[in-house]
Nucleic acid binder design. Structure first.
Length: 838
RNA sequence: GCGAAAGUGGCGGAGUUGGUAGACGCGCUGGCCUUAGAAGCCAGUGAGAGAAAUCUCGUAGGGGUUCGAGUCCCCUCUUUCGCACCA
């Protein structure tokens, strides 16, 4: 017989919902705890990745409720974005309709899982009561000088007249029409995240973030100390600024490398002597259309073209050739590189290929370098040569003095550079948040006034007619009066990156229905920072960094007090099947709905949490799900078989006089019951520790399984004396009490049928008694030269000498030591005896 | 290519500070129960040798530190994630 999971789960879901136990209160005596899962993109149905994510979050939610916190676990939908737009086009519908339908389905599935979500705080980013505040934030960014427009290069398909994401470019061709993709320079809106680069490197405001996420973000920001050096053009006053981390090699610079995107290059290409079909034009076009990952790859052949122009090295007045190359990026540093072929491998390869002069300026102190014989660049530290007054200095030490000297003589300055680039937020798409800007011929760029917010997306657009941004053809919407002068003007048609929506949603949950502001400061500070944030590792850098940036921005606006949005972070692993990520593209997805219908939500939760630690990938297994179901059935049967006994005794368990009576009767307890009592208290201790300190649900569940096996090993329950029966019942009751966080429906039901009045989250965490964890004997392992040769049981208070004596008496030990001399004996307390013998 | 992780039986995984490798679960094998099946229950299960006691080998591969290494150090390989317009 299977336990009636369907009936039980529906019943308790209704009770929880009716009693509103998951509706977080804004004002209580209890301490607040905010559990947040990354909100889902409403793709139509929950997948296993969601189930895994929310099972973890729900376990934490219920654990914290048992601990007595006022817990908030909200939910919402990240509902703007390209997939919804494409889906609507394919199905000849509108993204608003399909998105709302999808949300409806997902909401039902959340309920079927029984997650403890506070539905009164639900948000959806595509609803105007939410995106209004995204527009409001854009205006604030603009007012603070943090939103600005600049030209930047984007993947462009001429045929579709649209920008393409990197993932929409397949082998350099458009995914839709297969025409060749080129790089086009477009005016785009940016947020100045670089302004916060330094602060984003500081993680002192977070409590418990995985080291690897911090490292990835730190590397992404990529701070480096170096020197900016100013080269003058030979025949004009134009300056070329270069950034280098190796000012010690400046005297060895023999050429300069520019990317084709460099403004100087752009200017030169516009000159009359460079017709459209010139070599330089062709070269630049070719390089710009390669994708940047390939361009910077070390394997890529270095290519370049000599511009025929020269710059002057400020330190020695030497002429250096100016080249356009494929291996320098406009986005990093100053977008120009001083090339020192003798001491940089990329420059070395390039100089060899194009026969550019080299100059040795750092000599290897170990083995003298001869320029003509070098097979690769010498990049190690050494002694400066050919460097005027700096000759003879150690190269690493010379960096400071060279930089200082250059600063004094107006040749450059010491500077810090970040790899981090400003955040491009412009998207040429319909299904996103409109940027609140109006362009007027007379007044220029004008912000939309607050009273005109939200700018609602026009409904009557033609999706899929053209591949361009559909907003361009929404004439009624685009043509507006200038808010300043009233003359005809045009709206900005770009919408915002959806990462903007997801950068502050966690704060909106604190005050989701506010019509006056994004949220009130009081309520935000009441809940923020999020105590526990849970989501996929794929967001380690972008989403998590944008949200940190936004939070700091909101703090600087005086909207929140905290410095960080997420105090603790758990990055959960993927759900895989046959070693590959589960998903539509691999055609290996398992539908959670089907599994819940067959086995119930508790089974799915227990399986997902048991399959692996939350931060590791977990492999789906149909048989494993059955195993989880079997386990829950075993728990159910234990209570079914012993119901009368448990009911009768569990009532007296809460009688304060009971523990004393039991304790007094220790000598009447048989050995296996004493063991069972140890198991109960040990399991409680282990489960609490695994959840609280290690977030390791798989071992917590394993411990409960082991304990259940121990309970089942008591065969003669009827013949036990009263004291023994009490201990037996205690061992049973501990099971639903501990399992509430993993299998809440089943646990709640068992708790009820044994006669408990309150709900489990009100019962508090189970308690263990250290007294029952004391063991009178300890097993010591005996090792000889690191190999196990025997075991001894020793009383806890045995002295080292007694242990040594006993160890040497073990038969197998004596045998192994024959003909050997004992050099040393090491005793590790409560663990082992190690004998060194030769 | 750059950045970040991971690699333990047939499988998922355990092993918290260097101290009995393989907890727990799945699968498999044998048995009980049953008209039969399902379910359930009991026992066994890293490889090799041995009647057994026990011994040898074993944590991706190679080297090192240590009385003792899955755990620490160096090198190599493989897989996964991210790389700025997927979210």
């Amino acid at each position: 017989m299977e336990y009636p999971f369907e009936q039980i789960e529906k019943k308790w879901q209704k009770i929880w919902s009716d009693k509103k136990i998951f509706n977080a209160k804004n004002n209580t005596d209890k301490k607040n705890y905010y559990v947040l899962s990354m909100f889902p993109y409403p793709s139509g149905a929950l997948h296993m990745g969601h189930v895994s994510n929310y099972s973890i979050a729900d376990a934490i939610t219920r654990y914290k409720m048992m601990q007595g916190y006022n817990v908030m676990q909200p939910m919402g939908y990240d509902s703007f974005g390209m997939p919804a737009e494409n889906f609507a086009i394919q199905h000849n519908s509108h993204p608003r309709i399909t998105t709302d339908q999808n949300i409806e389905i997902m909401r039902k599935q959340f309920d079927m899982m029984g997650f403890g979500i506070d539905w009164e705080r639900e948000v959806s980013t595509c609803h105007s009561d939410y995106y209004k505040w995204g527009q409001w934030f854009f205006k604030k960014m603009y007012e603070k000088g943090l939103a600005y427009k600049k030209r930047s290069f984007q993947n462009w398909c001429d045929n579709c007249q649209t920008v393409l994401a990197n993932e929409q470019v397949e082998d350099g061709k458009c995914w839709r029409c297969s025409s060749v993709v080129r790089q086009k320079e477009l005016e785009q809106w940016f947020f100045k995240i670089t302004e916060y680069a330094e602060e984003l490197l500081d993680f002192s405001g977070v409590i418990d973030w995985p080291e690897r996420v911090k490292t990835m973000q730190t590397n992404w920001i990529g701070k480096s100390f170096g020197t900016e050096i100013w080269f003058r053009m030979e025949d004009s006053e134009d300056l070329i600024k270069v950034f280098t981390t190796r000012p010690d090699t400046i005297f060895g610079c023999t050429f300069m490398a520019l990317p084709p995107e460099h403004p100087l290059v752009t200017n030169w290409l516009k000159l009359k002597e460079e017709p459209e079909n010139s070599k330089m034009h062709k070269f630049c076009d070719k390089i710009m259309n390669e994708d940047t990952i390939n361009r910077t790859s070390e394997d890529t052949t270095k290519e370049g073209i000599f511009t025929g122009r020269f710059a002057i090295n400020p330190v020695n007045g030497e002429k250096v050739q100016i080249w356009i190359t494929n291996y320098v990026l406009m986005d990093y540093g100053t977008g120009a590189v001083m090339a020192v072929p003798a001491h940089d491998q990329r420059d070395f390869e390039f100089a060899k290929k194009y026969d550019i002069p080299m100059k040795l300026v750092i000599q290897n102190p170990e083995e003298k370098l001869i320029l003509e014989e070098m097979k690769e660049a010498y990049t190690e530290p050494g002694i400066l040569v050919n460097s005027d007054n700096f000759d003879g200095l150690e190269s690493t030490e010379s960096m400071t003095s060279i930089s200082e000297w250059m600063t004094e003589n107006n040749m450059g300055k010491v500077t810090i550079t970040y790899r981090l680039r400003d955040w491009g937020v412009s998207r040429q798409r319909y299904w996103g948040n409109p940027i609140p800007i109006i362009y007027c011929e007379d007044c220029g760029t004008v912000l939309v006034p607050d009273e005109d917010l939200p700018i609602k997306l026009p409904e009557n657009v033609q999706l899929g007619k053209t591949t361009q941004n559909p907003l361009l053809s929404a004439d009624d919407w685009v043509n507006v009066k200038c808010p300043k002068c009233g003359k005809p003007a045009r709206r900005e048609t770009d919408t915002m990156d959806t990462f903007v929506d997801s950068s502050w949603y966690y704060a909106r949950y604190a005050d989701p229905k506010n019509n006056e502001m994004p949220f009130s400061k009081e309520l935000a500070d009441n809940w923020l920072p999020v105590d526990q944030y849970i989501g996929g590792i794929e967001h380690a850098v972008m989403h998590l960094m944008y949200a940190r940036f936004f939070h700091k921005f909101m703090r600087d606006l005086g909207m929140v007090n905290s410095n960080e949005p997420f105090a603790r972070l758990l990055t959960q692993g993927m759900v895989t099947k046959d070693g590959a990520k589960m998903g539509k593209s691999k055609n290996n997805a398992i539908d959670p709905q089907y599994i819940v219908d067959r086995y119930g939500s508790d089974t799915v939760r227990v399986f997902m949490l048991f399959a692996s630690p939350p931060d590791k990938d977990s492999e789906w297994s149909d048989e494993g799900v059955k195993g989880a179901f079997r386990f829950l059935n075993r728990v159910w049967r234990l209570f079914e078989e012993n119901l009368e006994l448990i009911k009768n005794i569990s009532v007296t368990l809460s009688d304060p006089a009971m523990p004393d009576r039991i304790e007094g009767s220790d000598n009447k307890l048989c050995a296996e019951i004493k063991k069972l009592r140890y198991s109960t208290h040990f399991t409680i201790k282990k489960v609490l520790n695994d959840i609280e300190n290690r977030m390791q649900f798989n071992t917590a569940i394993a411990a409960i399984m082991e304990h259940l096996n121990n309970v089942y090993s008591i065969k003669n329950v009827e013949t036990l004396n009263v004291a023994e029966k009490v201990i037996f019942v205690e061992s049973c009751v501990a099971i639903p009490h501990l399992m509430y966080v993993f299998a809440p429906h089943l646990s709640e039901e068992l708790w009820k049928i044994i006669g408990e009045e309150n709900l489990l989250h009100e019962a508090g965490l189970p308690k263990f008694n250290e007294k029952y964890l004391i063991q009178d004997e300890i097993t010591y392992v005996i090792q000889i030269m690191g190999k196990v040769r025997g075991k001894i049981n020793v009383s806890v208070d045995a002295t080292d000498d007694e242990i040594k004596k006993l160890a040497l008496e073990v038969e197998n030990v004596t045998k192994s030591l024959e003909g050997k001399e004992i050099k040393k004996m090491i005793i590790v307390p409560k663990k082992l005896v190690s004998i060194v013998a030769k």
